[in-house]
Amino acid sequence: MNGLEIRRPSTRTLLWALLVTVVVLYAFPFLYLLLTSFKPPLETLAVPPTVLPSRWTTANYAAVWASHGVPASFINSVSTATISTLLSLVLAVPAAYAITRFRTRAGRLFVMLALVTRMVPPVAVGIPLSSTINSLHLLDTPTGLAIAHTTISLPLSIWLMSSFFEAVPDELDEAAKVDGCSRLGALWRVVIPVVSGGMAVTAIFAFLASWNEFLFALLLTSVRAQTTPLAIANFQTQFGLDWGSMTALAALYSIPVILLTLLLQRHIVAGLTLGAVKG
């Protein structure tokens, strides 16, 4: 018998009730956003607020998709997040591998410093970053914005990948070497396939960091590279709040990440439990 298995019906019911409550609490804001996106304009800010639309309408979706710049902002968000994710992985994987395999004091210091950079508020680096990206002639391009986003996601990516590499025994590298692999060959052919679940987790975190980022997008984009978070915020002006369009665009913008999470769910679970079976 599994020690964790709960057989008493009353305990199971209680736990299920607790689970449902927690899920509802977590999901309600998004559900409310979704329902609001189907409400007529007058009802979106009703006082007192209503949960269900009195009349369901897709007018907000039609209006928002027809808004100039919205489809383009989607393309910009996808390309920026993709580039940033690739950059994060390309830089984090070798860095984390070196740190975990060579185990030097400098390596440990590097991981610590990388984590410390995450504590710096993004607004503090906004102006210097803007000047740097401008010097590289990358202002208002997805590449420039992706580089900025990588400064956010890279430390966490290194840290995450380090923990995944730690879980892979050195003997695996040794065996690959015995079979004729170089150090890089062992990493590429043997170790990376083992930590692919961890890489998926890291990629999702990097992708989400870029997908949802607002401040750097605000400071570094103007005409060509504006991302959807800016487009969503543009519906709030000093003289009004277009809540219907805002919620419709936010709902549309959530779909890709929800699909991505569902698609990679197996890898995420495998990745998150990788460290738990170390040894």
Partner: peptide, 15 residues
């Protein structure tokens, strides 16, 4: 496609 969009951007909420 990615390289093209990355280099130029697809345009945003501008007119």
């Amino acid at each position: 496609t990615l390289v093209t969009v990355a280099a130029c951007g697809a345009g945003g909420t501008t007119s």
